[in-house]
Design a protein around this nucleic acid. Structure first.
Length: 572
RNA sequence: CGGGGUGUAGCGCAGCCCGGUUAGCGCACUUGCUUUGGGAGCAAGGAGUCGGAGGUUCAAAUCCUCUCACCCCGACCA
């Protein structure tokens, strides 16, 4: 392709809206333009990246036995009512009405639609297993779209759905998808990690996420790894055992109320009373589906809202507003404690039950209680782990210790079980003629998000460094002065040679100065750069350079195709 | 949803407090000449409903009210 015949509107200045480096380069490099919050136009360069990645996905999915279909984006609301998700997915779902005032939704995922499809079609175990997938636009009305393609309201996703006769068959299908995912990301030049994750609104028994580890601000998820075994989990899901439990007092002491003027935060209380935060019980008041609950965690821990939400089986969970806290605790915010707390469920983290002679709020203004003890002074209604795992603590699986990294989710896999087949009554007849629900799985890959994640992972201060297999072009030819007949002729000849050898090639045939071309080339990040200029032309050569390194190599004009192929072999 | 902020030429911004010529600057764009291995120089030029609506005033980008859009932070604190 010729630069002058395609459309690559690079920008010199940084658009003010972009925060993440990858988002900036997408805008500056002329890959995307914003139409509305979380809604983007994919320009020619982005289109090529999307096509290349989608083709890798398609190829590996096909190899794994999945079959491509295309389902509608527009769904009747009734189908979502069948599974019950119309009520539970909430405001993330885009909803609209047609001229007949019929309720419709724009699909953010397609479990209901495939299940509905197969419900009427697949009636025998002989027709299974089945794995259907599609690559198409999805809509999710995100609370806060941001970071460009990373969290958009409209985006492209590959979603696959498996249907199996039983648990064993399902595990085979699931593992096939996991293997396919690793193959896909490896081909795209991305080293991903599989982590355990929360199932969220999708439901089902278990789930995994495929994470690209990054060390930039783009790492939207916190991940927990074991330094010894292969335990890996999203912080939402990660669990742990205490590596060095605090010492427990020998004696249970009598309850005592003390004044703690102006000390309402953990820090203020611990420094005022000169105690370790590990002795403190933090009492947090939440509203779970509008009903107040108290969560007790140790003073040095962080609450894990998802764990709490899952335990309660709530759809929505929010911090209680001050007025509710005051009503429930009969005291100003900052002095809540479990002793004497009436009429609301008290969920305690297991660590809390192991503190002897703890410190808590007294449910009175500027007062705390000392020597609080479980059973004698309060009784939790449930004891469940509701705090975040912390680096340094013990691995739940082995003797190792936990560490933490940041990552970007590029794919996910869900073990759905029979959630959808049962609720939507999608059954088949097994070999004994018995009616059974499908065992299902669903599998997503962010087609537009993954390339941005790749940029977040592979870039320098001049621009993108595309992995070769998702790069918009493999080679960029830069004739330094296209007006010079010799530069032009050599460039054109090399271009023809490469193209006829099936190598994706972009030639910068603009009448721009060298500096402009170099800077744009660095920005758009095409892996191999061929520079044609007087210096090396004098000796019958051109210059070849990989975008990811500073080393330049001179290549004889007659040997360019072989040299380019050789270089492409060696790079990511 | 809560808090903060921004809307002025394609992009990045100044002007707004303290109302007063034809609303500026840089980049980009057009034309000409020179230049030509890391974002060229000079000259001439084109381009703006000052986000929208209403109001105050002799006079509004500037003050007031409403509204829309977008960005950032938060929703980890009892």
């Amino acid at each position: 392709m010729r630069w002058t015949q395609t459309y690559i509107p690079t920008l010199r200045e940084v658009p003010s809206e972009a925060e993440l480096i990858s988002h900036r380069y997408l805008l500056r490099g002329g890959f995307i333009r914003k139409l509305a919050a979380g809604v983007y136009i994919y320009l020619p360069m982005m289109q090529r990246v999307i096509d290349k990645f989608a083709n890798i996905v398609r190829d590996e999915m096909n190899k794994a036995g999945a079959i491509e279909i295309t389902m509608p984006v527009l769904h009747p609301a009734e189908i979502w009512q069948m599974s019950g998700r119309y009520e539970t997915v909430g405001k993330e779902q885009m909803r609209l009405q047609d001229r007949h005032l019929h309720n419709l939704v724009l699909g953010g995922t397609h479990e209901e639609i495939v299940t509905y499809l197969l419900k009427g079609e697949v009636k025998s175990y002989k027709q299974l297993p089945l794995n259907l997938y599609q690559i198409q636009v999805k809509f999710r009305d995100e609370i806060r779209p941001r970071f460009g393609l990373m969290r958009g309201r409209e985006f492209i996703m590959k979603d696959a759905y498996t249907f199996d006769v039983d648990e064993n068959a399902f595990m085979v299908a699931y593992q096939k998808m996991v293997d396919a995912y690793f193959a896909i990301f490896r081909r795209a030049g991305l080293d991903t990690r599989k982590v355990e994750s929360d199932t969220g609104a999708m439901g089902g028994k278990a789930a995994h996420e495929f994470m690209l580890i990054v060390d930039t601000d783009g790492g939207e998820q916190t991940l927990i790894f074991c330094d010894h075994c292969d335990y890996a989990a999203n912080i939402e899901k990660a669990t742990y055992h205490e590596a060095s439990p605090p010492q427990i007092d020998a004696e249970i002491l009598p309850l005592k109320e003390v004044d703690t003027p102006h000390a309402s935060t953990i820090e203020e209380v611990t420094s005022f009373l000169k105690i370790d935060a590990k002795r403190l019980i933090k009492t947090l008041i939440y509203l779970a589906d509008k009903k107040p609950v108290a969560a007790l965690i140790r003073g040095d821990r962080e609450l894990n809202l998802i764990k709490l939400k899952n335990h309660l089986g709530a759809n929505e969970i929010d911090m209680a507003p001050a007025a509710i806290v005051e009503e429930v605790t009969e005291s100003p915010v900052g002095y809540a404690g479990p002793v004497g707390l009436k009429n609301i469920p008290i969920i305690a983290d297991p660590e809390v039950t192991r503190i002897r002679n703890a410190v808590t709020g007294a449910n009175k203004n500027e007062k705390h209680l000392l020597n609080v003890n479980i059973d004698r002074d309060f009784a939790p209604s449930a004891v469940v782990e509701i705090v975040n795992a912390v680096p340094g603590e013990g691995c739940p699986r082995c003797n190792g210790h936990l560490t933490s990294k940041r990552g970007i989710e590029v794919g996910n896999t869900f073990m759905l079980g029979t959630k959808y087949s049962v609720s939507m009554e999608a059954h088949f007849l097994d070999a004994e003629g018995k009616e059974r629900p499908f065992i299902m799985g669903s599998y997503g890959i962010g087609i537009t998000r993954t390339p941005q994640a790749a940029i977040e992972r592979y870039h320098d201060d001049k621009g993108i460094i595309w992995p070769k297999n998702i790069a918009p072009y493999l080679v960029e030819i830069i004739p330094l002065n296209y007006e010079k007949e010799e530069h032009k002729q050599v460039a054109e000849q090399i271009y023809q040679e490469l193209v006829s050898n099936g190598i994706d090639c972009l030639i910068d045939d603009r009448l721009e100065r060298a500096g402009v071309k170099f800077n744009d080339a660095d920005l758009i990040g095409i892996p191999v750069r061929l520079v044609i200029g007087d210096k090396s032309l004098k000796i019958g050569k051109l210059e070849m350079k990989y975008r990811g390194s500073n080393e330049m190599e001179q290549v004889a004009l007659g040997n360019v195709v072989a040299a380019v192929k050789g270089l492409l072999e060696r790079i990511n």
